[in-house]
Amino acid sequence: MKTRVTELLGTKYPIIQGGMQWVGRAELASAVSNAGGLGILTALTQPTPEDLYKEILRCKEMTDKPFGVNLTILPTINPVPYDEYAEAAVKGGIRIVETAGRSPEPFMPYFKENGVKVIHKCTSVRHSLKAEKVGVDAVSVDGFECAGHPGEDDVTNLILLPAAKAKLKIPMIASGGIGDAQGMVAAFALGAEGINMGTRFCATQEAPIHDNVKQAMVQGDERQTALIFRTLNNTARVFRNAIAEQVLEIEGKDGDTDFADLQPLVAGARGREKVLEGGDTDDGIWTAGMVIGLINDIPTCQELLDRMVSEAKALIAERLTTPFAD
């Protein structure tokens, strides 16, 4: 498969593993890259920039293929040394960075000086155009179906992707709601030149999370997600479990939501320790996209990518015949 995205990344397939907090580690990133896609290490999963540098070196021991680093730039109570994380990535030899959250503009001169290609994740057409204007090499356009933060516009990829494609000059990567060959072919038809998958890669053998979480995604359906933090204008799509229901109950009460009431329930450390590591899928918040309705197995990354590509070719050759009479 050859697109502007494979040329940009130097990969066999235009398939990218999303940068997921607590999940984007060397085990998964290297497996995706070895399978022909682009694996992504999540910078802020590592407690310090030095730990990120060590994780990059560890990943290099597992693959000789390209992989990148995700840097999610968000306002935080405790200051995060984003500049130092960026420097650790460059020091480790990373030449592909996925940015998310706030604009990557302050980091662009440094990345450009060091030959780093930047993909910025956007949830709207206007943000995609702004990212293009500040000089990113590609945008990853995230539809409402996605896990994590879908923005506040509630536009699905069936509309968002062609709307963005009509105005962008740089390559566009489709993100959100994709987990199989049908989704990949649809994304290309809508104007994308690559796809980004997060939730689907969580349900692979190499994903460094508890098997209970993977099985919950296999057993769940497309209705098994919830949108929390809507009252805070910081919407997040998560797996619908007991904690998510408690959050929705608090947000459903009259009056302004006080985040202090939610914090003990949604703390990231709780989700990591209780759910992703401990395996109690009801004792913390964990992000999941609507694509769980399409997840029916837990393959290796190699099996997943090979299957998607072969089935996509078959779909295009056998099923996408014209229904129109001459």
Score class of each variant (00 low, 15 high):
3 T>N: 12
5 V>L: 13
5 V>H: 11
12 K>A: 12
13 Y>P: 08
14 P>Y: 09
15 I>V: 15
18 G>P: 05
19 G>W: 02
24 G>Y: 03
24 G>M: 04
27 E>N: 09
29 A>H: 02
30 S>D: 06
36 G>F: 01
46 Q>T: 04
47 P>T: 09
48 T>G: 09
48 T>N: 05
50 E>H: 03
54 K>H: 14
59 C>S: 09
61 E>D: 14
67 F>P: 04
70 N>S: 08
72 T>D: 10
72 T>K: 01
73 I>T: 09
73 I>Y: 03
74 L>H: 08
74 L>Q: 13
75 P>V: 08
80 V>W: 02
81 P>G: 10
84 E>D: 15
86 A>D: 12
87 E>H: 13
87 E>K: 15
89 A>M: 12
89 A>N: 07
95 R>M: 06
100 A>L: 02
101 G>Y: 11
104 P>D: 10
110 Y>L: 14
110 Y>A: 10
111 F>R: 01
118 V>P: 02
119 I>Q: 06
120 H>Q: 12
122 C>Y: 10
123 T>F: 04
124 S>D: 14
125 V>F: 03
125 V>Y: 03
131 A>P: 08
132 E>R: 07
133 K>Q: 15
138 A>W: 05
140 S>L: 09
141 V>D: 02
146 C>T: 14
150 P>L: 01
154 D>Y: 09
154 D>S: 07
163 A>D: 03
166 A>S: 15
168 L>N: 03
170 I>A: 07
171 P>C: 13
172 M>S: 02
176 G>H: 00
176 G>S: 11
177 G>M: 07
178 I>Y: 08
178 I>R: 09
178 I>F: 11
179 G>T: 15
181 A>L: 09
183 G>K: 11
184 M>P: 07
184 M>W: 02
185 V>C: 05
188 F>P: 06
190 L>S: 09
198 G>P: 00
204 T>N: 11
204 T>H: 12
207 A>Q: 01
209 I>P: 02
210 H>S: 00
211 D>T: 00
216 A>G: 06
216 A>C: 06
218 V>G: 03
221 D>V: 06
228 I>Q: 01
236 A>M: 06
237 R>E: 11
246 Q>T: 03
249 E>P: 00
249 E>Q: 14
250 I>Q: 10
251 E>D: 04
253 K>P: 12
253 K>H: 14
254 D>R: 06
259 F>G: 08
264 P>F: 10
271 G>N: 06
273 E>C: 00
275 V>S: 01
277 E>S: 08
279 G>D: 07
282 D>K: 02
283 D>F: 02
286 W>M: 06
290 M>H: 15
291 V>M: 00
293 G>S: 05
296 N>M: 02
307 R>N: 15
310 S>E: 13
311 E>R: 10
312 A>M: 10
312 A>D: 00
313 K>H: 15
313 K>C: 03
314 A>K: 11
315 L>F: 04
319 R>Y: 13
